[in-house]
Design a protein around this nucleic acid. Structure first.
Lengths: 198, 198
DNA sequence: CTTTTGATTGAATAACCAGTCAATTAAAAA
DNA sequence: TTTTTAATTGACTGGTTATTCAATCAAAAG
């Protein structure tokens, strides 16, 4: 008798997780196109044939990771909305969460995948559709209402809220990229970025 | 009789400039690896064979653009040093120059090439050597002395100058990337980023 | 130890693309 | 118009990599 259904399921979950994890590491450093399936297989310590047993293509793997990255960012934003306190306090809390995750190691890679996805023309069509679909909430558009509320309470400077949100998000993206370039460089204090709202 | 030496020289200069210009556009949107020589040729309205008449390889073209980008950034930094005024005023002037160039259109693409060059593992070895060579001055290391001077004059907040420089540069990089994603989004005022030093 | 089933492998194939080169074209001047 | 020379073209070659698939392996249970 062979393995039970559950045992096989567990193996499959484990393997596909291994592959996604390996792919995240390689994609974030080399980009999707420059990454060979054999690079992913090597990183995950398995054969390239097995990668195709679990995923139809390199593009499917990339798309899965973009989905995951989008989910993560939504999660962080939603959690910050649930925090008690003023809008600015929520933004600060969110910033601290993001900075903390930058120092840990997997969320920042998802962040970098997201930057690739939204920056490069050389991504799968499915990714382009995902990012331009109405249900995809960009961090900038999520941030704007919070900023407006803070401005009504006079705790945030009176400036174009979209511009402030763009600047905030640009800063975060820039720090993520910097972290990739110099992993040992310290992440600044959340207060430094919050200053732009005052 | 054929064309004169000068006429041919002019044609060659023009063509190689066409190719570099086209390559800059395509590279910045698709990345080096995802860009085919035929993409560059199409963008420049000439045949792919001609690209090889002027350049030995795709990598040579990319490396040339990275050199150009490095030169541009050095130029802006040096110009800012020549400005009259306090260190913070110099930084502000530099920021304004950079923001202005972001709205124009070719310098920002060089900036994006530089980000690719320093972020991706999939760049030619020559680029890696260039960026790690001692004569290459990174913007961060150029900025640190200026920040230290500003701190001595009490016009810049007393914080780790490297961290401030990293944050400043991250912000600039992030804005460049944002501009690629949403070209119509307004570039913020230089004063917004200067706040972090106060 | 044998059987069963699905995970796993890697040789084989197919598609793509960088880079080459023989042939063509275009411009200038005789 | 003809000649000369260098720019320009695009069919072709070689190497690389995505993807397939027939064969093998490994674990569980009788």
């Amino acid at each position: 008798m062979p393995r039970s259904r559950e045992q096989n399921l567990e193996i499959r979950n484990q393997r596909s997780e291994d592959i996604l994890h390996a792919a995240l590491n390689v994609f974030s450093r080399r980009g999707m196109v420059a990454t060979k399936i054999s690079d992913i297989a090597k990183e995950a310590h398995l054969s390239h044939g097995l990668v195709y047993h679990y995923f139809a293509s390199k593009e499917e793997i990339f798309t899965r990771l973009v989905r995951r990255a989008a989910d993560s960012s939504v999660q962080i934003i939603e959690q910050s909305q649930l925090q008690a306190g003023t809008p600015l306090a929520k933004i600060k809390w969110m910033t601290e969460q993001i900075f903390q995750s930058f120092s840990e190691g997997q969320y920042i890679l998802l962040f970098l995948i997201m930057i690739q996805a939204s920056t490069s023309d050389a991504v799968p069509d499915e990714v382009k559709q995902l990012l331009s679909s109405p249900e995809f909430k960009s961090p900038v558009s999520c941030l704007v209402p919070l900023i407006v509320e803070g401005q009504q309470r006079q705790e945030i400077i009176q400036q174009d809220p979209v511009q402030l949100a763009v600047a905030y998000y640009a800063f975060i993206q820039g720090l993520a990229i910097n972290k990739l370039q110099w992993p040992q460089a310290p992440v600044p204090d959340a207060e430094l970025i919050i200053k732009m709202f005052k």
